[in-house]
Design a protein around this nucleic acid. Sequence first.
DNA 1: GCGGATCTTTTCCGCTGTCAATGAAAAAAC
DNA 2: GTTTTTTCATTGACAGCGGAAAAGATCCGC
Lengths: 393, 393
Amino acid sequence: MRSTSPRESVPTMTPAASLVFTTLLSHGPLTRAEVGRRTRLSPAAVTKAVRPLMELGYLVEGVDEEARPTVGRPANLVWVDGGRALFIGMKVTGEEVIAVLADLCCRIRMSRHVRLTGREPEVVLPAITSLVQELLTEAIGFGVQVRGLGIAISGDVDRADGVVRYSPFLEWRDVPLAELAATATGLPVTVDNDVRALTVAEHWFGAGVGLSDFALVTVGAGIGCGLVVHGRVVSGAHGVAGEIGHLPLDPLGPLCHCGNRGCVEAIAADPAILRAVRAATGRQVTDAAEALDLAHSGDPGFRAVYARAGEAIGKAIGSLVNILGPERVIISGEGLAAYDLFAEGIRDAFAASAFGTAARCDVMTRPLPFEEWARGAAATSIQTFMGSDTYEE
Amino acid sequence: MRSTSPRESVPTMTPAASLVFTTLLSHGPLTRAEVGRRTRLSPAAVTKAVRPLMELGYLVEGVDEEARPTVGRPANLVWVDGGRALFIGMKVTGEEVIAVLADLCCRIRMSRHVRLTGREPEVVLPAITSLVQELLTEAIGFGVQVRGLGIAISGDVDRADGVVRYSPFLEWRDVPLAELAATATGLPVTVDNDVRALTVAEHWFGAGVGLSDFALVTVGAGIGCGLVVHGRVVSGAHGVAGEIGHLPLDPLGPLCHCGNRGCVEAIAADPAILRAVRAATGRQVTDAAEALDLAHSGDPGFRAVYARAGEAIGKAIGSLVNILGPERVIISGEGLAAYDLFAEGIRDAFAASAFGTAARCDVMTRPLPFEEWARGAAATSIQTFMGSDTYEE
DNA sequence: GCGGATCTTTTCCGCTGTCAATGAAAAAAC
DNA sequence: GTTTTTTCATTGACAGCGGAAAAGATCCGC
């Protein structure tokens, strides 16, 4: 039964093959010639990289009758067959686990979530395992194997070792989650920090495609940030990076849970906004959606709070841009619902603080569906599968 | 006369050779076996990489009688022969040009400087050329060829194209300096931003040796910062990076020349300190050295100003560390003369703002002799010569 | 149908770095 | 004083990757 051996269907990725594959993953159908130009590989090298991947079914070929140049041999387009493999991505929070079944192109095919009854690994791991089982069962219907499991967790996560060093929300320390989950599920497991996982997805499949330097800022319950520098996600020497939530903006500002005053997060995160709204208007607003409704209805007190939050976010982005000089900053997160209220503040504060040509940086927004974090985890799993964590651009 | 052909003495650098060479450059004499371990190259590869470089005289070999392990065949140490090649490095400011003659190990052999009578390229270029001629003449005495010229200039510099896009102090725009200087001097020319050049020198020969992520903060007339992320110097998509001088720390702080209030530079740079000292004490202090003397003599008003500046620098470093998570931050610059007055403020503010494990980042100081900027330029030239700008770790 | 243009594949080749075996040189063991 | 052990260094065979050049494929325009 050689033909069913799993070894045969797992591609052997050389640096060139990995490069060609990720190029096709990010930039849709391309001709071999175009792939060669973009990767600076010779046409011969592209052909050789494509063939084995195509034989295994990861790439497929076709002709584009539409946009064909007037002269020369017509090109064959090559693209990734998303349906060729499936991956499971999970986001674990203190309250629940969200899981998605994503294909090779990281399109979500299915999603599930369960609430957690506790935060100990002994509770979380069975929840992960049963979600995996559920999705594996569903995956049978697609007739394709699930090739990996990615888990995203906020906090200090060591992806290389697969260990959660410290997670404040789960109160975990040094939990070897990759190993535990791999034993429990039988799948290859990749564990990474949640914001970094989201950044990976954005780099490969989102607004960061083709960029070697960009930042992803998430606004919501906290203010987070993922960074890509020199084409690679920044992890920080000690596992911490992208913490823009605690940039100190105002020594007289509100007290932050980190102990300082006037942090971005103490001004612009959801709890800070609620607090400010209550203080400014005296109304007992209890959640972000309610505050947003009231602000939208025109209450000037509410609007001022959002304006100030926007200004804080704009300053934070300006600082980030001055330090790293990225090509683009993508603003996302649940807080985006209030973007119309933030927008002006962000724009003005950013423009005022960006230094020289750094101001050319493109600041854009992007919605963040709730499964997106789990999708990011799936993206890290695809990276591992494709060897793209070893060979990067 | 084949043996004197310059081609023959220029090494052909393969990726492995470049890696071995830079390892030896940064980590002093090493055995081949140790080089192999550090570069993750096989012993065979090291031997093969070393041989041609040794034949050309760039590397030399010897035995270390001192520290020999108790057992096994004694190792042969290999190191870079600094005297094998010379490079000229220059720092161009609005007022003067500082030039050094450095060897392959970037040790300064000689230095010169001239004052500028104007800032136009037509004035600066002849000054550069005559300094080069002078140093070339001196170099004859060393019996070794000068292999390149590096020029460091503050502002927006495009190293790849060798063009000064915009230099505020020189009032230059789009000056193709590399080409001009190469034509005038006949040397291969590398042009780079001054802080980045200094960072390169620090990465290869200073406190950044062996680190893939660190920051170099310069304190003086301005507050600058060079960054190394993923083993490479960060340039920013639009030529701007490391601008920590304008992090907004206090909306009620002093007005900065950038138009905002409470920038780090408006609190902690030399001019800001002088201004604050005058405002606080009423004394007409005119330069940084004088202010420093008075502060050292114990005047509490002066001390408070320096303490506040130290706090600002500490917050800036904390922000930097939270965003990038470097292994180390090196504080340098003329402002270091006042470090004893800054130190406490920096330390406390950094400790308060660094988030989680990011606080493990090693913050250290390092003196900055005045030729150091020019030495940085020489380092960029060595990079170009050794092909280390193409093959990086 | 021929020539030109462009994409794709094939064939060949150089080069790099690994592997495994061998040689070298010293200390330790007997 | 020989042998063994240990570590460093070198050699030669080898596999694989990617490039160069040439050939093949397939269209358009004339």
